[in-house]
Write a protein that binds this DNA or RNA. Structure first.
Length: 381
DNA sequence: GTTCGGCCGTATAGTAAAAT
DNA sequence: ATTTTACTATACGGCCGAAC
């Protein structure tokens, strides 16, 4: 390490060329330069750099989570086994399994003296009375405002499906119809977010020092600009972005596939994000990844929004869906072609889009996205 | 034929807790 | 302290048949 006659030199790791280190960090290193030798400075710099590189490495998950299957009663697993052959989406099967867990534990609790209900074969002891008492149990929860009507309906739908299966397997002959009064749909909400609020949210992300800052910005701005769903963001593959044409192809089971135009600024931001992503060793082709290098999930998207909200407003003010609603309202308000808006929202039917027209006319008149918040960010940097 | 509404599969939201 | 998962609850929307 002797420097002697030579000028001090430093070998920069190739990886470093792609890393960004803030000016402030560098300045901090040389803060007390008066007391440091050149050699010490270089050592210190190297130290900071290697720390930074280490930091940017993708973490790996330590150990697998608890086997999900152990969380569900045997009946739910058998249910899944039976129905997964019918092409149900994973989320649907999950929902039913969760609902079944409630039902099975209800049976085991309320009818303990009838013996246990563990496997579907044991469900031959299931009686209509038990189901009706489950209904009553749910109604009680409904009346005490623990759950909504639509949830009661969901639970009973699962029971109905279970009975279908039991019938097909000749385990039970109970024919069950959900009572009319218990078939409640959920209520639609419609949030509208003023532009300033969106700006505040985005600014808070821009200002943050988060390692996933660029990812988060891309996710929020994508939702804002094209009104896509969280699930559609999780489904995005790298190939879905056609950067030269500034087009992005989004897909979900619910809405199918559609291709949308994005702004110049957003495409630049995405490009920048993808550069960062490229510098990590990622084995999948998903555009957005979590800190483990795995494809991001809808939970991940939600937490991006929650974090940003908390930072910006100190409370949860709006969610991805609200941005989606805002997008639809703005798009319609700016006198875009109705069918175009409908298509860009991924609505297959006009009625889905029409719903947004019935919003407060006053508010619709008041605001119209005066500018793209991205302009400020890109110019400001 | 268009519109309305039910059905039901599937997505999102809120919260707590775990993992780093 | 931050970021993610797990769980429960609930909203959204495609599809289709009945009512207009």
């Amino acid at each position: 390490m002797a420097l002697e006659n030579k000028r001090p030199t430093i070998t920069i790791n190739e990886q470093l060329l792609n890393k960004k280190i803030s000016v402030k960090t560098i300045l901090n290193i040389f803060n007390d330069h008066s007391t440091m030798t050149e050699e010490q400075m270089l050592l210190k710099l190297n130290e900071v750099i290697s720390k930074k590189i280490k930091q940017d490495k993708v973490n790996s998950r330590k150990k697998p989570l608890i086997d999900k299957n152990t969380l569900f009663p045997q009946i739910a697993l058998e249910f899944k086994e039976f129905f997964s052959r019918r092409g149900y989406a994973p989320s649907t099967l999950d929902t039913h399994m969760r609902n079944l867990r409630q039902f099975v534990s209800f049976l085991n609790y309320s009818y303990a003296n009838y013996g246990s209900f563990n496997t579907i074969l044991e469900l031959h002891r299931l009686t209509k009375i038990m189901i009706v008492s489950f209904e009553e149990f749910l109604i009680e929860k409904l009346n005490t405002e623990q759950i909504q009507g639509s949830t009661v309906y969901r639970y009973l739908s699962t029971v109905k499906l279970l009975l279908q299966m039991l019938h097909e397997k000749s385990i039970s002959t109970i024919h069950y119809v959900i009572p009319e009064a218990l078939r409640k749909q959920g209520k639609r909400s419609n949030d509208y977010i003023e532009t300033e609020q969106i700006n505040t949210l985005i600014e808070s992300v821009v200002k943050s020092n988060s390692q996933v800052k660029f990812r988060d910005m891309c996710v929020i701005l994508l939702t804002m600009e094209i009104g896509c769903r969280p699930i559609e963001i999780t489904n995005l593959k790298i190939d879905d972005l056609i950067i030269t044409e500034r087009r992005i192809r989004i897909h979900s089971r619910k809405s199918g596939t559609r291709t949308l135009k994005i702004s110049k600024d957003l495409s630049q931001l995405l490009k920048r994000y993808l550069e960062i992503r490229d510098s990590l060793q990622i084995t999948n082709t998903n555009m957005f990844i979590n800190s483990f290098g795995e494809p991001i999930t809808t939970n991940g998207i939600r937490s991006i929004f929650e974090r940003a909200n908390k930072k910006a407003f100190n409370e949860r003010r709006f969610n991805p869906k609200a941005l989606r609603h805002t997008y639809a309202t703005n798009a319609l308000d700016n006198e875009n072609d109705f069918d175009e808006v409908s298509a860009s929202m991924g609505h297959l039917h006009r009625c889905s889009t029409e719903w947004y027209i019935h919003r407060s006319v006053q508010r619709m008149l008041r605001r119209a996205l005066p500018h793209n918040p991205l302009n400020q960010i890109m110019n400001g940097e």
